[in-house]
Design a protein around this nucleic acid. Structure first.
Ligand SMILES: [Mn+2]
Ligand SMILES: [Mn+2]
Ligand SMILES: [Zn+2]
Ligand SMILES: [Zn+2]
Lengths: 148, 148
DNA sequence: ATAATAAATGCAATTAAATTGCAATTATTA
DNA sequence: TAATAATTGCAATTTAATTGCATTTATTAT
């Protein structure tokens, strides 16, 4: 499991991506930048709306715009829920672990992840747009009754 | 990409799993056994209902029972749709390629897949229940205008 | 073979994530 | 500061999947 290291400046990220600077986008982006794990739309919605009111649909649209601009990436679970994380240079594509118990998603070691990903580098004729390696199970905290 | 080799007998599979033998279960199971790629509920529904009437909800429930008994496994896509394939001894867990264009899912080489999967074998304290390695993109057929 | 019991199915209604249309608001640019 | 373009809020919709319940079908015991 890794911890986020690299930090980005949300205003700079938006400027580079040529996305207009709205308070909603800044709020969502700051949340992604500071998150220590991928977040769902609902998690972002709840956290932001503690202080600021943003419509849920807006968060869907903001995240879609981030994904389109390669600012963020979406990680779908077995259970059909999308988690989002930064897709900046500090955070290359990597594998994830999803805990069915606490519903948290953990980022897995990027070195091991990239070794796995490289194995599928040449699927001749097939154009690869995204690769996801997801493990589902129960996290160590939940295993020892941590969710109580 | 691989082709299905191993065959199973649907009646025997149901008996071994202690699932009662209904015409609906036999139809769904035969379809999975003979499929050359994973199928969605809708695909199964359409194919079966060409000759036999089965309610869509029944297919959902049948597939859930198959997954619970490890007869089949579900493979979710980026787009939130579940594909199903046999989970018998002839078909170990492996990676998949999902074509966004034609919506077909392809099974990838199980040898390469298992090498990738082994890399994540020991996540200490984390109980692994499922592992999925999914690549999304455009298949070779669609790449050369095959979907036209 | 028949009756009793248990399981599976069909149908309608529901859930929940995600998407869309459109009017109102906000940001960018000239 | 005004004009233009983009974004947001809200309501309605879409769609995969799930649930409750009455009916039908399969399994089991007699
Ligand atoms: Mn991650
Ligand atoms: Mn497969
Ligand atoms: Zn957990
Ligand atoms: Zn294709």
């Amino acid at each position: 499991m890794i911890k986020k290291i690299g930090q980005c400046n949300s205003l700079q990220v938006l400027k580079d991506a040529k996305l207009s600077r709205t308070s909603q986008r800044v709020a969502v982006l700051d949340m992604l930048i500071n998150a220590e794990r991928p977040l769902t739309v609902i998690q972002i919605f709840r956290n932001i709306n503690f202080h600021q009111k943003i419509h849920k649909v807006t968060i869907y649209r903001i995240l879609s715009s981030f994904v389109a601009k390669d600012i963020a990436r979406g990680i779908p679970t077995d259970e059909g829920i999308n988690y989002y994380e930064m897709a900046c240079r500090h955070n290359p594509v990597h594998a994830h672990f999803y805990c069915k118990s606490c519903k948290k998603m953990f980022c897995l070691d990027p070195a091991t992840s990239s070794r796995a990903i490289e194995l599928f580098a040449d699927l001749n004729g097939f154009k690869i747009e995204a690769l996801s390696l997801n493990i589902t199970g129960v996290c160590s905290n939940c295993n020892k009754g941590g969710s109580l």
